[in-house]
Computed example of a mutant assay.
Amino acid sequence: MTAPSPPAGYRPPERFRYSSAFLALASLVAFVVSVVGFGALLWFLQGTPEGGSVSFGFAGVVAVFLVCLATLVVHEAIHGLVFRWLGYRVSFGFAPHVPALYTAAFGQFVTRRDNLLTGVAPLVVITAVAVPLLAAPLPVASVAYLVLLVNTSGAVGDVYMSWRLWRLPPETLFYDVDIEHSYAFEPANDTAIGAE
């Protein structure tokens, strides 16, 4: 797939790619850090648990799966709501080669600012809602803890993209042809300070 012609005043596009191996490793690191960090906060807020062992049968496994799936769906829905609020047409889907759910504004030029806002929104919103719930009664706090683990490790691609975007000129435009073909258009009369 090819990118469209550059808008007036922009350089030819450059392919915008993610390193799958790096993101997988970073996601694992984020998960471990989240387990420890949010776990310590949960322990601080809830105190030492009383009683014996916790039984975790088939119903518990199903509940964990549903919470994880719901977290991923809400994460993508937040991306979509921000894109729509900013005036873009939104596509949702599943990329089996990653594997991951995705939200995109295919076939449209998206500003750097709008991509940054859309990218960080789920991490900010879900964290802001779930962290205070760690102080709620333990069943609610346990769900909030799981939501934080899934959302934080799942937001690694968003954080990586935001870091890359931040290093480009503010006027940079992005264009997603499909889930595997993304392009960046930098302004012709500007230089990317600190860009790669």
Rank of each mutant, 00 (worst) to 15 (best):
H181N: 15
G119D: 00
F109V: 03
A155V: 04
A192H: 07
G87D: 12
L41I: 11
L168A: 11
L25Q: 09
A128G: 13
I126H: 00
S34K: 00
G119H: 01
L116P: 03
P49F: 02
L86A: 06
E76Q: 11
V33S: 01
A135Q: 05
V33Q: 02
L101Q: 08
A144H: 03
E196H: 12
V143R: 05
G107C: 11
R17S: 13
Y175E: 04
T172F: 09
S91W: 06
A104H: 00
T71Q: 03
D114W: 08
R167Y: 04
W163M: 14
V129P: 08
Q108Y: 09
P122Y: 00
L86E: 04
A30W: 00
H79C: 07
T2C: 03
L101S: 02
L146S: 02
R89T: 12
V82M: 07
V143S: 04
D176I: 08
D178H: 10
A77W: 03
V74I: 15
A192R: 09
L165F: 13
V82H: 04
F22R: 13
V177K: 08
A155E: 00
V140F: 05
T103A: 15
V61K: 10
N189M: 08
S53Q: 10
D114S: 14
G52N: 04
A95K: 08
A104P: 06
Y145W: 12
V32Y: 02
G57A: 11
A24C: 07
A188P: 13
A192M: 07
Y160V: 14
I193C: 06
S55T: 12
P170R: 15
E14D: 13
P170G: 12
A24F: 11
A144Y: 02
P99H: 08
A135V: 07
F31G: 05
V32H: 03
L148K: 02
R164C: 09
L66Q: 01
G52P: 02
E76P: 08
Q46M: 02
A21Q: 12
V120T: 10
D190R: 15
Q46G: 06
S27R: 05
S5Q: 14
V67Y: 01
G37N: 05
P99V: 11
T191A: 13
L149W: 01
F22L: 15
